[in-house]
C-alpha cells in the first residue's frame, strides 16, 4: 500500500514519532555538537525544542495539516533553545507557511514545503555556516523535490 496523501492526523502522528525518535537519540546528537560552542548540548536543546512543539500539537486535535503545522511551528518558536533549536523553529516556520490552509498534502506539497522551509531558514542568517543542520535540511529538500517530480 502506498500513501499518496497525508491527512492532519497522520501528519500529527509523524511529528510526534519524529520527536520520540529525536528524544531517543539525543545523546548521539550531543556528541556531534561542535558549533558554535562545543559544549555538547545540541541534543538536549533540540529535544527541549521539539518537545515544546509536540506539546502544542497534542494540545489541539485537528484534521487540518496546515493547522497542525502552524501549531507545531508556534510551539517550536516559543520553546526554541540553542542555535539548533532556533534553526529548527525557522525551518518549520517556513514549512507551516507553505502548507497553510491545506487540509491534506501530497508529495509535491510536502517537497515544496521542505524547500520553502529551507529558504526561510537561510534568510534569517547573515553568514550561513555550512556543515550545520542547515546544510542537511537544504540537501534533503533538494532530494525531496527531485523525487517528487519523478513520481
Amino acid at each position: 500500500m502506498t500513501i499518496k496523501i497525508i491527512e492532519g492526523e497522520k501528519f500529527a502522528h509523524m511529528l510526534i514519532e519524529g520527536a520520540n525518535n529525536l528524544s531517543n537519540n539525543a545523546k548521539i546528537i550531543d556528541a556531534l555538537n561542535v558549533f558554535p560552542v562545543p559544549d555538547g548540548d545540541t541534543g538536549t536543546n533540540l529535544n527541549l525544542t521539539i518537545t515544546s512543539g509536540v506539546k502544542e500539537v497534542k494540545g489541539q486535535s485537528t484534521e487540518h495539516v496546515g493547522k497542525v503545522a502552524g501549531a507545531f511551528a508556534k510551539g517550536l518558536l516559543m520553546g526554541a533553545r540553542g542555535n539548533s533549536g532556533v534553526i529548527l523553529s525557522q525551518l518549520f516556520r517556513g514549512f507551516s507557511k507553505s502548507v497553510e490552509g491545506k487540509e491534506t498534502i501530497n508529495a509535491k506539497d510536502l517537497s515544496k514545503a521542505f524547500e520553502f522551509g529551507v529558504e526561510m531558514a537561510y534568510k534569517a542568517v547573515m553568514k550561513p555556516v555550512e556543515g550545520t543542520i542547515l546544510t542537511v535540511a537544504k540537501d534533503s529538500a533538494k532530494k525531496a523535490v527531485t523525487f517528487a517530480k519523478k513520481k
Binding site: L77, M78, A80, G82, G85, V86, Q90, R93, K123, A124
Partner: peptide, 10 residues
Amino acid sequence: VSYGTKISEV
C-alpha cells in the same frame, strides 16, 4: 535580528 526567531534565545 531576524523577525520570527526567538530573540531572547538568539
